[in-house]
Amino acid sequence: MSDAAYWWVFFSAALALNLAPGPDLLFVLSRTLSGGRRIGVASACGVCSGALVHVAAAALGLSAILATSALAFAVVKYVGAAYLLYLGIQALRSAGGQFNLRPAPRTSALQAYRQGILVDILNPKAAIFFMAFLPQFVRPEQGAVAVQLLVLGGLVVLVAIVIECALVLLAARASSALRANRRLGLWLDRVLGSVLIGLGVRLGLSERA
């Protein structure tokens, strides 16, 4: 395969995978709708920072532990599911407070960034994804495998941040109008909470395969 064809296949796959509505993307969009563009971008940066941790783990071979150890997979899975359930319950309890224009405690950009990191790191399937996806594009003749995995993983994350930030900008347009309406804000908080709880349940029920 020529270099041009190689990179075409790689970036096409990375684009398609990042456009798929997975837990990370749904989390970022739900945070954008609840907090606006700034919170959405911070969440996207957090998720992608967490993904870089998985990339580093894949390059070092640590992700193989999650792929082969049922106990390690279960521990990470249930901690991640519990965290998503916690965020969902917090959203449901806010009763529209996140969209209230009156002064009220809200998620800061730093908090959103930290939440994004945890949501991605505590998803064992993300680790297994990088362990399964990246080696397909390793070319032994190009040098150290670990370095190639780091570069390829970094490029996947770069594609992800571009896509997620573009979607954040689109979602933020809707969120600005929704935050000004108390009734819509109430229902959107309920939707946000339901999405996060649904992601938590989905993660809790997921299998290694």
Score class of each variant (00 low, 15 high):
residue 50 G to Y: 00
residue 50 G to F: 00
residue 50 G to N: 00
residue 50 G to H: 01
residue 50 G to L: 00
residue 51 A to C: 06
residue 52 L to C: 04
residue 53 V to Y: 02
residue 53 V to P: 02
residue 54 H to I: 07
residue 54 H to A: 04
residue 56 A to V: 15
residue 56 A to Y: 05
residue 59 A to E: 07
residue 60 L to S: 13
residue 62 L to S: 04
residue 63 S to I: 03
residue 63 S to K: 05
residue 64 A to D: 03
residue 64 A to I: 01
residue 65 I to K: 05
residue 68 T to Q: 14
residue 69 S to R: 08
residue 71 L to T: 14
residue 71 L to K: 11
residue 72 A to I: 07
residue 74 A to G: 02
residue 74 A to P: 00
residue 75 V to R: 06
residue 75 V to Y: 05
residue 76 V to M: 15
residue 76 V to C: 11
residue 76 V to S: 03
residue 77 K to R: 15
residue 77 K to V: 02
residue 78 Y to Q: 13
residue 78 Y to S: 07
residue 79 V to W: 07
residue 79 V to T: 14
residue 79 V to E: 08
residue 80 G to A: 09
residue 80 G to R: 09
residue 81 A to I: 05
residue 83 Y to C: 08
residue 84 L to D: 03
residue 85 L to M: 14
residue 85 L to P: 01
residue 87 L to S: 04
residue 89 I to Q: 07
residue 90 Q to G: 08
residue 93 R to Q: 15
residue 94 S to C: 14
residue 94 S to H: 11
residue 95 A to F: 14
residue 97 G to D: 09
residue 97 G to K: 07
residue 98 Q to I: 03
residue 100 N to K: 08
residue 101 L to K: 11
residue 102 R to K: 14
residue 102 R to Y: 03
residue 107 T to A: 09
residue 107 T to C: 10
residue 108 S to N: 09
residue 109 A to N: 04
residue 109 A to E: 15
residue 112 A to R: 06
residue 113 Y to T: 04
residue 113 Y to F: 15
residue 113 Y to I: 01
residue 114 R to K: 13
residue 114 R to D: 08
residue 115 Q to D: 14
residue 115 Q to E: 15
residue 117 I to Y: 01
residue 118 L to K: 01
residue 119 V to A: 06
residue 119 V to D: 01
residue 121 I to P: 00
residue 121 I to V: 15
residue 123 N to W: 01
residue 124 P to Y: 06
residue 125 K to E: 08
residue 127 A to Q: 02
residue 127 A to V: 06
residue 128 I to N: 09
residue 132 A to F: 11
residue 132 A to Y: 04
residue 134 L to A: 04
residue 134 L to D: 04
residue 134 L to V: 15
residue 134 L to K: 03
residue 134 L to S: 03
residue 136 Q to I: 14
residue 137 F to C: 10
residue 139 R to S: 04
residue 142 Q to W: 15
residue 143 G to I: 06
residue 144 A to K: 04
residue 147 V to F: 07
residue 149 L to P: 00
residue 150 L to Y: 06
residue 150 L to F: 10
residue 150 L to W: 10
residue 151 V to P: 00
residue 152 L to V: 10
residue 153 G to E: 04
residue 154 G to E: 01
residue 156 V to R: 02
residue 156 V to T: 12
residue 159 V to N: 01
residue 160 A to T: 13
residue 162 V to Y: 02
residue 162 V to A: 12
residue 164 E to S: 13
residue 165 C to V: 15
residue 166 A to P: 09
residue 167 L to S: 11
residue 169 L to T: 12
residue 169 L to Q: 10
residue 169 L to R: 07
residue 170 L to W: 12
residue 171 A to V: 10
residue 171 A to M: 13
residue 171 A to L: 10
residue 174 A to Q: 13
residue 176 S to G: 11
residue 177 A to C: 10
residue 177 A to N: 08
residue 178 L to W: 11
residue 181 N to H: 15
residue 182 R to P: 09
residue 183 R to W: 11
residue 184 L to W: 12
residue 185 G to S: 13
residue 185 G to T: 09
residue 187 W to G: 14
residue 187 W to I: 11
residue 187 W to V: 14
residue 189 D to R: 11
residue 191 V to H: 09
residue 192 L to T: 15
